[in-house]
């Protein structure tokens, strides 16, 4: 029962590589931010699946921390792109 997790992990890794094309090429700032956001989501799922492949539950703690960091990063980048500053005096 390691084969389905292995196939899912390889597919998610291939889609991360495909999204990095849009993060490099995509026209304008906002297309790149969208690509970076979806790469963060897929990295969380990939951490969970890798924890099940190697049978090490420590990866789940890293997944929890990465979810929080990814959400806060997205919010801060959106605020900076909207206003041009992080905190107004």
């Amino acid at each position: 029962m390691i084969i389905p997790f292995l196939v899912t992990g390889i597919l998610i890794g291939c889609t991360i590589l495909a999204c990095s094309y849009r993060a490099m090429i995509g026209p304008g700032t906002f297309n790149r931010i969208v690509a970076a956001n979806v790469i963060g989501t897929k990295a969380i799922v990939l951490l969970v699946v890798v924890g099940f492949i190697f049978e090490r539950p420590q990866f789940l703690d890293i997944a929890i921390m990465y979810a929080a960091i990814s959400f806060i990063g997205t919010i801060i980048i959106a605020k900076y792109a909207e206003r041009g500053e992080l905190c107004s005096p």
């Binding site: 906002f30 931010i33 969208v34 956001n37 989501t41 969380i44 969970v48 539950p57 789940l60 703690d61 997944a63 929890i64 979810a67 929080a68 959400f71 997205t74 919010i75 959106a78 605020k79 792109a81 909207e82």
Partner: peptide
């Protein structure tokens, strides 16, 4: 732990998407 990750990101992901959409619309 898995339920914690899934439930948190089920709330946080659409909130980030909405913030990005509003930033693009205002810009």
């Amino acid at each position: 732990k898995l339920l914690l990750v899934s439930a948190f990101y089920l709330l946080a992901g659409p909130a980030g998407t909405h913030a990005l959409m509003k930033a693009g619309y205002v810009t």
